[in-house]
Design a protein around this nucleic acid. Structure first.
Lengths: 199, 199
DNA sequence: CGATTATATACAGTCACTGCATTTTTGCAA
DNA sequence: TTGCAAAAATGCAGTGACTGTATATAATCG
């Protein structure tokens, strides 16, 4: 019956999701620090040792789908014509991700609360973002292909991520915020026009 | 003989510095991970438990003087007239810090190598920077005082830090880089003119 | 010098995470 | 269906960062 993806693989995915769900509930109920790996594994019906073949660290339970975002951005970036201005390409790429976030608002918010309340998880999320920045910068550098573009590419990537990060934070924590795509768009506009133009 | 600052305080400072120096040497010689707190404390002539009354974590040994930078930036920011455009104030504030860095180039580079080679230290440095961003954003928000300035302030702070971070990285890792203040100035200019203007 | 207080230290413990050896489960073929 | 090899789960024994607490030492002050 098991169609293409064998039983093995399906089991793996199912357990991974179970770990994630169970962990999030425990984190919310008892707090991140008071929830040990032992408790999580037990609640998920697995041996403690097994946890680490699913997630490298406890932090990564909260940031599980983080890496997908980068892939999405990079993919989207590659669909843009090479002739387009880099900042416009970035804007377009981030717009799609912003829509993704907006669509999963509750799920995102849930994780965001845990991330922002827990220093080590927060630090890890920044670290992941730094990795994105690097990959983004590399992609952009290819498009610029002039000399001296290395630092410029880095600045563009850092700027884009700064917009995204600030917007998300505002979006999640301000009860009556605009929708995320709009915030991101505005942010990109402000950076496009130039930060000198601010009030 | 002990002038104003009592013997107690002087001892504390001296031990703190000794821990820092000794640790950096061990990190460079044996690697960060292979250098345990026990080894560091022993090399500094202290009991292992004592280490933690000087530094909260092992990571912080490398990032000891990080927090001073923020104070410097904030102080400098406060000397700027309130009427000045926020981005100009930021540029001025960061310019002075860039000079500080340039003056301590070797020391900075030494630490930077360790930071960039060690994920947990790197993550911690980003976490500290996020704290700065928040404080910077608060300061700027006070100056903007209009409604809806919250997100704008955050964007400005994030932008400034992005310039600083990218510039430092480039400055440290590119052998024939311009001097840091010049890089930072250029970065601020690019953001001021607008990122849409890039090649 | 004695009393007070800050600081250093010793001891015992928790918990994330790792390496390794062993057992169980799954996929596949005879 | 059964037997076999690969993959995955588990158990065990560690390491090392970090914490709470109780005690010893050293600095400050009268």
């Amino acid at each position: 019956m098991a169609s293409k993806p064998g039983l093995r693989e399906r089991n793996k995915l199912e357990r991974r999701h179970r770990l994630e769900e169970v962990a999030l509930e425990l984190f919310e109920r008892d707090g991140f620090d008071k929830t040990t790996i032992d408790k999580i594994s037990e609640a998920a019906g697995l041996a403690p040792r097994t946890f680490f073949s699913y997630f490298p660290t406890k932090d990564d339970l909260v940031l599980a789908d983080y890496s997908q975002r980068l892939d999405r951005i990079l993919t989207e970036l590659n669909t843009r014509p090479v002739t387009e201005a880099p900042w416009s390409s970035l804007r377009a790429a981030f717009a799609t991700v912003a829509s993704d976030y907006q669509a999963q608002r509750d799920q995102i918010r849930r994780r965001f609360v845990i991330v922002s309340q827990n220093p080590s998880v927060f630090a890890r999320s920044l670290q992941l973002q730094a990795g994105w920045e690097q990959e983004l910068a590399n992609q952009i550098a290819k498009r610029l292909d002039a000399q001296d573009c290395e630092l410029t590419a880095q600045l563009l990537a850092a700027g884009a991520l700064a917009v995204m990060r600030s917007s998300i934070q505002y979006w999640v924590s301000s009860p009556r915020s605009k929708e995320l795509p709009e915030l991101v768009e505005q942010g990109f506009d402000q950076f496009a026009k130039g930060l000198a133009a601010n009030a």
